[in-house]
Write a protein that binds this DNA or RNA. Structure first.
Lengths: 98, 98
DNA sequence: TCTACACATAGATGTCAATCTATTTGATGG
DNA sequence: CCATCAAATAGATTGACATCTATGTGTAGA
Protein backbone atom coordinates (compact mmCIF):
# COMPACT_ATOMS: atom_id res chain seq x y z
CA UNK A 1 0.00 0.00 0.00
CA UNK A 2 1.49 3.30 -1.10
CA UNK A 3 1.74 6.42 1.00
CA UNK A 4 -0.80 8.07 -1.30
CA UNK A 5 -3.30 5.28 -0.68
CA UNK A 6 -2.80 5.53 3.06
CA UNK A 7 -3.30 9.29 2.90
CA UNK A 8 -6.49 8.77 0.92
CA UNK A 9 -7.83 6.31 3.50
CA UNK A 10 -6.91 8.65 6.34
CA UNK A 11 -8.73 11.47 4.59
CA UNK A 12 -11.78 9.25 4.20
CA UNK A 13 -11.64 8.50 7.92
CA UNK A 14 -11.11 12.12 8.94
CA UNK A 15 -14.81 12.90 9.17
CA UNK A 16 -16.83 11.94 12.25
CA UNK A 17 -19.85 10.96 10.17
CA UNK A 18 -17.75 8.58 8.10
CA UNK A 19 -16.07 7.17 11.21
CA UNK A 20 -19.51 6.56 12.62
CA UNK A 21 -20.51 4.80 9.40
CA UNK A 22 -17.46 2.56 9.66
CA UNK A 23 -18.30 1.77 13.26
CA UNK A 24 -21.83 0.84 12.22
CA UNK A 25 -20.53 -1.41 9.47
CA UNK A 26 -18.40 -3.15 12.08
CA UNK A 27 -21.64 -4.72 13.25
CA UNK A 28 -22.17 -6.14 9.79
CA UNK A 29 -23.49 -5.25 6.38
CA UNK A 30 -26.03 -2.43 6.20
CA UNK A 31 -28.00 -0.68 3.48
CA UNK A 32 -27.97 3.05 2.91
CA UNK A 33 -31.41 3.54 4.41
CA UNK A 34 -30.31 1.84 7.64
CA UNK A 35 -27.31 4.13 7.91
CA UNK A 36 -29.42 7.16 7.14
CA UNK A 37 -31.69 6.46 10.08
CA UNK A 38 -28.86 6.92 12.55
CA UNK A 39 -27.08 9.87 10.99
CA UNK A 40 -28.23 13.45 11.03
CA UNK A 41 -27.52 14.13 7.40
CA UNK A 42 -29.62 14.18 4.25
CA UNK A 43 -29.66 11.28 1.84
CA UNK A 44 -27.45 13.01 -0.77
CA UNK A 45 -24.89 13.78 1.93
CA UNK A 46 -24.83 10.12 2.96
CA UNK A 47 -24.46 9.17 -0.69
CA UNK A 48 -21.46 11.48 -0.89
CA UNK A 49 -19.86 9.95 2.19
CA UNK A 50 -20.38 6.42 0.90
CA UNK A 51 -18.71 7.42 -2.34
CA UNK A 52 -15.69 8.75 -0.46
CA UNK A 53 -15.44 5.50 1.50
CA UNK A 54 -15.90 3.41 -1.64
CA UNK A 55 -13.40 5.39 -3.72
CA UNK A 56 -10.58 4.38 -1.41
CA UNK A 57 -11.84 0.78 -1.22
CA UNK A 58 -12.50 1.00 2.47
CA UNK A 59 -16.09 -0.06 1.88
CA UNK A 60 -17.57 -2.55 -0.59
CA UNK A 61 -21.14 -2.59 -1.80
CA UNK A 62 -23.58 -4.39 -4.03
CA UNK A 63 -27.05 -3.62 -5.21
CA UNK A 64 -29.99 -5.82 -4.32
CA UNK A 65 -33.20 -4.54 -5.81
CA UNK A 66 -33.74 -1.05 -4.48
CA UNK A 67 -31.13 -1.43 -1.80
CA UNK A 68 -27.43 -0.77 -1.86
CA UNK A 69 -25.67 -2.91 0.74
CA UNK A 70 -22.43 -1.70 2.27
CA UNK A 71 -19.76 -3.50 4.25
CA UNK A 72 -16.17 -2.92 5.30
CA UNK A 73 -13.56 -4.13 2.82
CA UNK A 74 -11.41 -6.29 5.05
CA UNK A 75 -8.56 -6.61 2.63
CA UNK A 76 -7.97 -2.87 2.32
CA UNK A 77 -8.53 -2.42 6.00
CA UNK A 78 -5.96 -5.03 6.86
CA UNK A 79 -3.37 -3.35 4.66
CA UNK A 80 -4.14 -0.09 6.37
CA UNK A 81 -3.78 -1.66 9.81
CA UNK A 82 -0.47 -3.14 8.77
CA UNK A 83 0.80 0.25 7.68
CA UNK A 84 -0.26 1.86 10.94
CA UNK A 85 1.23 -1.00 12.94
CA UNK A 86 4.51 -0.43 11.13
CA UNK A 87 4.84 3.05 12.57
CA UNK A 88 7.04 2.55 15.58
CA UNK A 89 8.09 5.09 18.14
CA UNK A 90 10.02 5.53 21.38
CA UNK A 91 9.75 1.95 22.64
CA UNK A 92 11.76 0.76 19.69
CA UNK A 93 14.27 3.55 19.26
CA UNK A 94 17.31 1.58 20.36
CA UNK A 95 17.83 -0.77 17.47
CA UNK A 96 14.82 -2.98 17.96
CA UNK A 97 13.88 -5.12 15.02
CA UNK A 98 10.42 -3.68 14.60
CA UNK B 1 -10.08 8.30 22.69
CA UNK B 2 -13.19 9.94 21.27
CA UNK B 3 -14.37 9.71 17.71
CA UNK B 4 -13.55 13.40 17.30
CA UNK B 5 -9.97 12.81 18.39
CA UNK B 6 -9.62 9.89 15.99
CA UNK B 7 -11.03 12.01 13.17
CA UNK B 8 -8.54 14.76 14.01
CA UNK B 9 -5.63 12.32 13.93
CA UNK B 10 -6.84 10.86 10.64
CA UNK B 11 -7.04 14.34 9.17
CA UNK B 12 -3.51 15.04 10.35
CA UNK B 13 -2.37 11.84 8.63
CA UNK B 14 -4.29 12.52 5.43
CA UNK B 15 -1.47 14.49 3.81
CA UNK B 16 1.43 12.71 2.14
CA UNK B 17 3.94 15.24 3.43
CA UNK B 18 2.80 14.66 7.00
CA UNK B 19 2.81 10.89 6.51
CA UNK B 20 6.36 11.19 5.26
CA UNK B 21 7.26 13.24 8.34
CA UNK B 22 5.80 10.55 10.58
CA UNK B 23 7.78 7.90 8.72
CA UNK B 24 10.95 9.93 9.21
CA UNK B 25 10.24 10.29 12.91
CA UNK B 26 9.92 6.52 13.09
CA UNK B 27 13.69 6.47 12.76
CA UNK B 28 13.97 8.65 15.84
CA UNK B 29 13.83 12.23 16.97
CA UNK B 30 14.57 14.90 14.39
CA UNK B 31 14.73 18.68 14.31
CA UNK B 32 12.77 20.84 11.89
CA UNK B 33 15.81 21.63 9.77
CA UNK B 34 16.49 17.90 9.29
CA UNK B 35 12.94 17.31 8.14
CA UNK B 36 13.10 20.32 5.85
CA UNK B 37 16.06 18.89 3.97
CA UNK B 38 14.05 15.91 2.80
CA UNK B 39 10.76 17.59 2.01
CA UNK B 40 10.04 19.79 -0.95
CA UNK B 41 8.23 22.49 0.98
CA UNK B 42 9.21 25.86 2.39
CA UNK B 43 10.04 26.32 6.05
CA UNK B 44 6.70 27.99 6.91
CA UNK B 45 4.85 25.14 5.27
CA UNK B 46 6.77 22.61 7.36
CA UNK B 47 6.03 24.70 10.43
CA UNK B 48 2.34 24.50 9.57
CA UNK B 49 2.47 20.73 9.15
CA UNK B 50 4.27 20.27 12.47
CA UNK B 51 1.60 22.34 14.14
CA UNK B 52 -1.13 20.13 12.69
CA UNK B 53 0.70 17.03 13.95
CA UNK B 54 1.31 18.59 17.36
CA UNK B 55 -2.24 19.89 17.78
CA UNK B 56 -3.58 16.34 17.76
CA UNK B 57 -0.76 15.12 20.03
CA UNK B 58 0.60 12.80 17.40
CA UNK B 59 3.99 14.45 17.70
CA UNK B 60 5.83 15.83 20.74
CA UNK B 61 8.57 18.43 20.66
CA UNK B 62 10.95 20.42 22.79
CA UNK B 63 13.22 23.33 22.10
CA UNK B 64 16.96 23.04 22.46
CA UNK B 65 18.69 26.30 21.65
CA UNK B 66 17.78 27.20 18.10
CA UNK B 67 16.42 23.77 17.36
CA UNK B 68 12.98 22.34 17.81
CA UNK B 69 13.16 18.56 18.22
CA UNK B 70 10.24 16.43 17.16
CA UNK B 71 9.31 12.84 17.91
CA UNK B 72 6.26 10.61 17.68
CA UNK B 73 4.04 10.65 20.75
CA UNK B 74 3.78 6.94 21.49
CA UNK B 75 0.93 7.22 23.92
CA UNK B 76 -1.41 8.93 21.47
CA UNK B 77 -0.26 6.68 18.71
CA UNK B 78 -0.98 3.59 20.73
CA UNK B 79 -4.50 4.78 21.48
CA UNK B 80 -4.99 5.41 17.79
CA UNK B 81 -3.71 1.95 16.89
CA UNK B 82 -6.07 0.45 19.45
CA UNK B 83 -9.00 2.26 17.92
CA UNK B 84 -8.10 1.08 14.42
CA UNK B 85 -7.53 -2.45 15.67
CA UNK B 86 -11.00 -2.38 17.17
CA UNK B 87 -12.59 -1.95 13.77
CA UNK B 88 -13.48 -5.48 12.80
CA UNK B 89 -14.95 -6.70 9.59
CA UNK B 90 -16.02 -9.82 7.70
CA UNK B 91 -13.70 -12.29 9.45
CA UNK B 92 -15.44 -11.61 12.73
CA UNK B 93 -19.01 -11.19 11.67
CA UNK B 94 -20.33 -14.38 13.19
CA UNK B 95 -20.20 -13.61 16.87
CA UNK B 96 -16.44 -13.65 17.30
CA UNK B 97 -15.15 -12.10 20.48
CA UNK B 98 -13.01 -9.50 18.77
C1' DT C 1 -49.03 2.50 -15.65
C1' DC C 2 -48.70 5.25 -11.63
C1' DT C 3 -46.84 5.98 -7.12
C1' DA C 4 -43.55 5.40 -3.60
C1' DC C 5 -39.07 4.38 -2.19
C1' DA C 6 -33.74 3.95 -2.42
C1' DC C 7 -30.13 6.01 -4.24
C1' DA C 8 -27.20 8.98 -7.35
C1' DT C 9 -26.09 13.29 -9.66
C1' DA C 10 -25.95 18.38 -10.42
C1' DG C 11 -25.12 22.64 -8.82
C1' DA C 12 -24.56 26.18 -5.20
C1' DT C 13 -22.49 27.85 -0.97
C1' DG C 14 -19.77 28.61 3.03
C1' DT C 15 -15.85 26.94 5.34
C1' DC C 16 -11.39 24.98 5.78
C1' DA C 17 -6.71 23.54 4.22
C1' DA C 18 -2.11 23.75 1.74
C1' DT C 19 1.00 26.62 0.14
C1' DC C 20 3.55 30.66 -0.73
C1' DT C 21 6.12 35.40 0.31
C1' DA C 22 7.32 38.54 3.76
C1' DT C 23 8.29 39.48 8.30
C1' DT C 24 9.22 38.65 13.22
C1' DT C 25 11.20 36.29 17.20
C1' DG C 26 14.82 34.11 19.50
C1' DA C 27 19.37 31.92 20.01
C1' DT C 28 24.40 31.49 18.64
C1' DG C 29 28.86 33.04 17.50
C1' DG C 30 32.16 36.40 15.96
C1' DC D 1 26.32 44.61 18.67
C1' DC D 2 25.63 42.56 14.38
C1' DA D 3 25.06 38.70 11.18
C1' DT D 4 23.20 34.22 10.78
C1' DC D 5 20.37 30.43 11.39
C1' DA D 6 15.92 27.97 13.16
C1' DA D 7 11.44 28.56 13.64
C1' DA D 8 6.92 30.92 14.11
C1' DT D 9 3.49 34.25 12.60
C1' DA D 10 0.82 37.17 9.32
C1' DG D 11 -1.58 37.58 5.31
C1' DA D 12 -2.97 36.15 0.68
C1' DT D 13 -4.40 32.83 -2.70
C1' DT D 14 -6.00 28.73 -4.57
C1' DG D 15 -8.40 24.64 -4.34
C1' DA D 16 -10.91 21.12 -1.89
C1' DC D 17 -14.70 19.62 1.12
C1' DA D 18 -19.26 19.10 3.68
C1' DT D 19 -23.60 20.20 3.19
C1' DC D 20 -27.79 21.53 1.27
C1' DT D 21 -31.90 21.77 -2.35
C1' DA D 22 -33.51 20.13 -6.58
C1' DT D 23 -33.73 16.70 -9.81
C1' DG D 24 -32.91 12.24 -12.19
C1' DT D 25 -32.81 7.00 -12.35
C1' DG D 26 -34.19 2.63 -11.25
C1' DT D 27 -37.06 -0.83 -8.77
C1' DA D 28 -41.24 -2.63 -6.53
C1' DG D 29 -45.90 -3.01 -5.76
C1' DA D 30 -50.87 -1.64 -6.34
Amino acid sequence: MTREEVAMICKAMSDTNRLRIIEMLTQGEKCGCNLLEELKVTQPTLSHHMKVLSDCNLVSSYKDGKWQHYSINCETFKEYKDYIAGITCCETKKGALL
